[in-house]
């Protein structure tokens, strides 16, 4: 498996660390209520098909949002998390 770091170009899987679902990027407001926070912290989909993950490229210290397919193992896109909310 290879991911294309927006900074470094295509790199080997060994250079990356998986963090979890990209849901972590959508943090609810502090007063959003228990259900929203419970969902944010604990509830994850387990899709067969397209999914969005967070990965960290350790060598260049970039957080990345990766769209990939859990059925075909295709990597659809790799985008930097930095600058998402400028």
């Amino acid at each position: 498996m290879r991911l294309s770091c927006p900074c470094c170009g295509p790199r080997d899987r060994r250079e990356f660390t998986y963090y979890g679902a990209a849901d972590y990027l959508d943090r609810p407001a502090p007063d959003a209520g228990l259900d929203a926070w419970d969902s944010y912290l604990h509830l994850r989909d387990n899709p067969a098909g397209p999914t969005r993950d967070l990965w960290y490229h350790d060598p260049c210290q970039s957080w990345l949002q990766v769209e990939r397919d859990t059925v075909t193992h295709a990597i659809h896109s790799v985008a930097p998390v930095a600058g998402r909310r400028a």
Binding site: C8, P10, R11, D12, R14, E15, D58, P59, C60
Partner: peptide
């Protein structure tokens, strides 16, 4: 090191962060 070390991908005068 998992870098592509061929001269076309990583020529002299370049730097990289890797393992």
């Amino acid at each position: 090191c998992p870098l592509d070390l061929r001269a076309a991908a990583f020529p002299p005068g370049r730097s990289a962060r890797s393992l």
